[in-house]
């Protein structure tokens, strides 16, 4: 019942956004090559999907995402473990990591191009650099913020070393880890699209730039819609579900 009402509210909201958009179009404030109509964007979406360019773009971008994100999770996780383990590293390398993370990931692009040329590797490099540090910061925070009582209870009940880590510290820091992974995904996604704009990369980022080159505002907006939908889907189908289960299990909040 409650869910139905929620869905109805969402549908109503997007209908309102579309109506607002259409009425702005009807006011003819801007020429159509600056401000596309909903119909022309839908048409661009239809063409994009029917001639497979959007499917290819999505496929290429998601493949890069998976590779880059997997690398980030592995490397960032390892770095986070190191930082959580050693106070010395935390005070030295840890400080540096936080400062470097504050830099927008697009700033890695010139370096990546000089190192790897206009290549797949350059894009992956930007993706990894964009998300790795945020993952490691969250992994470290998660492990360091495990309440002392859990570690003590674990040791008291006979867990130590790797078992203590696996059965107590890791599950205890899970809420932090999940939000770290989510943040890492968002950073990786942003970095990827920025990186893809630099050359003929076949990804969604390049489709955006192609729309600009062709002066085709409808395609630009259509690709933006696709990018937003993918972000929405990953957040809604993966991270939200994981977080909800976690919250319910831990009793972190009564929210459904």
């Amino acid at each position: 019942m409650n869910n139905l009402r929620k869905i109805a509210r969402q549908v109503g909201f997007y209908a309102f956004v579309l109506a607002l958009w259409q009425s702005l179009v009807l006011l003819k404030l801007w020429p159509p090559y600056v401000f596309p109509t909903p119909a022309s964007v839908f048409e661009a979406l239809r063409i994009g999907f029917s001639d497979h360019t959007f499917w290819i773009g999505i496929g290429v971008s998601l493949k890069r995402m998976l590779v880059g994100y997997a690398l980030s999770v592995i490397l960032g996780g390892a770095l986070g473990l190191l930082l959580a383990h050693s106070d010395f590293l935390e005070e030295t390398l840890g400080r540096l990591v936080v400062s470097v993370q504050s830099m927008p990931s697009i700033c890695w692009l010139p370096l990546a191009i000089l190192w790897f040329g206009l290549s797949e590797k350059a894009i992956l490099f930007v993706v990894v650099m964009g998300s790795l540090l945020s993952i490691s910061i969250n992994v470290e925070a998660g492990l360091r913020n495990v309440p002392r009582i859990y570690a003590m209870a674990g040791r008291n009940l006979g867990a130590s070393g790797a078992r203590l880590f696996l059965y107590v510290l890791l599950p205890a820091s899970l809420p932090h880890l999940v939000s770290g992974l989510k943040q890492g995904w968002a950073f990786a996604w942003r970095s990827l699209l920025a990186g893809e704009m630099i050359f003929v990369s076949l990804g969604l980022g390049q489709l955006l730039m192609m729309g600009r080159d062709l002066n085709d505002i409808s395609q630009v907006v259509a690709v933006m819609v696709v990018i937003i939908l993918i972000g929405f889907a990953v957040d809604g189908l993966v991270f939200r579900v994981v977080e909800r289960n976690l919250r319910r299990k831990w009793g972190l909040s009564s929210a459904a």
């Binding site: 209870a153 008291n156 009940l157 867990a159 059965y167």
Partner: peptide, 29 residues
Amino acid sequence: GPDRILLFQELGLFPWLTARENVEFGLRQ
């Protein structure tokens, strides 16, 4: 050591485990 078990004032139950899994934790170790 498993020969002396402390029952903490703060309990230290693991929130990610059920009551049964909490009791099983030490046995599993």
